[in-house]
């Protein structure tokens, strides 16, 4: 199977998707589309249903209602294992295998897909260079010998290794210190602009959303309230959007600086 997509280039589509546990509705009526080259941010408070929605896409959770299409095929037609190998997945706690070296971790999906060993090696080298890790220095290290930022770089390299057309990221930079976070966010923007992946990115940090997102989907209480362009978001009259913008203002006021938010969305 190739990464080539249909004419309108639709990688992920959710149609009126809902998820409930027992009788409790966690997520309902969520619809959106993501095309290659786009980064859709799912922004919201804790418990708003962002992560749940993300996990529905790669079937770590099963939808209770509605439909999800991945590369224009209904999710239910996919073998869940094959589906997940076509979707890169990066989580906040990274989840590198502690008993494997960096090289083994990055090579995970290519090896699962039984790529020839020479190609796996070459791919690992490319991926590590892509995320800015010196192969000679880091390939043989165990995750415990890495800093938090380096670990998340490996996490991104691992997610990209099998060249999946879709990337799901769940607060990937949330656990990092502010300086490392800013560094990784900036590099990730460049990476995302170059790679032409369809990216769904969960965060509760509006600043990160504005920097990285080409569109921002605002979640509130299990619903996708609206989807904005980054500059629209700042001028939205929606109460939840205002709450996020205000929190940003409060933060900036505290830091006594007025950095201009410039992200990929602004250039478009």
């Amino acid at each position: 199977m190739n990464t080539a997509l249909g004419a309108d280039g639709l990688a992920v589509e959710l149609r009126n998707v809902g998820y409930r546990v027992d009788k409790r509705q966690i997520v309902s009526g969520v619809s959106f589309k993501v095309a290659p080259g786009e980064t859709l941010i799912l922004l919201g408070r804790s418990g708003a249903g962002k992560t749940t929605t993300l996990k529905l896409i790669n079937r770590l959770l099963e939808t209770s209602s509605g439909e999800i299409f991945v590369e224009r095929r209904s999710q239910l037609e996919w073998d869940p294992i094959q589906l997940r190998r076509r979707i890169g997945y990066v989580i906040q706690d990274v989840g590198l295998f502690p008993h494997w070296t960096v090289e083994q971790n990055v090579a995970m999906v290519p090896r699962l897909e039984s790529w020839p060993e020479s190609r796996v090696r070459q791919r690992v080298r490319e991926m590590m260079e892509l995320v800015g890790l010196d192969v000679a220095k880091f390939a043989a290290r165990k995750p415990s010998e890495l800093s938090g930022g380096q670990r998340q770089r490996v996490g991104v390299a691992r997610a990209l290794a099998a060249d999946p057309p879709i990337l799901l990221m769940d607060e990937p930079f949330g656990a990092l210190d502010p300086v490392t976070r800013a560094e990784l966010q900036r590099e990730f923007c460049e990476l995302a602009a170059r790679l032409e992946k369809a990216i769904v990115f969960v965060t509760h940090d509006l600043r990160e959303a504005l920097l990285i997102g080409t569109r921002i989907g605002l979640f509130a209480e299990g619903h996708l309230a609206a989807i904005y362009k980054p500059d629209e978001f700042l001028h939205s009259s929606d109460a939840e959007a205002r709450a996020f913008v205000d929190s940003l203002g409060a933060e900036e006021g505290r830091e006594r600086s007025s950095p201009k938010v410039t992200g990929r969305g602004r250039k478009a």
């Binding site: 790669n58 770590l60 294992i81 094959q82 589906l83 997940r84 190998r85 979707i87 890169g88 997945y89 989580i91 706690d93 990274v94 989840g95 590198l96 295998f97 502690p98 995970m108 999906v109 699962l112 996490g155 691992r158 997610a159 799901l168």
Partner: peptide, 23 residues
């Protein structure tokens, strides 16, 4: 075993048998 490790193993497309054997 760290739940984050299991989640990433499952999310990256390991089968339950592979998760048991390799993780």
């Amino acid at each position: 075993v760290d739940p984050a490790v299991l989640e990433s193993a499952r999310g990256m497309g390991m089968t339950s048998r592979q998760i048991l054997r390799d993780v």
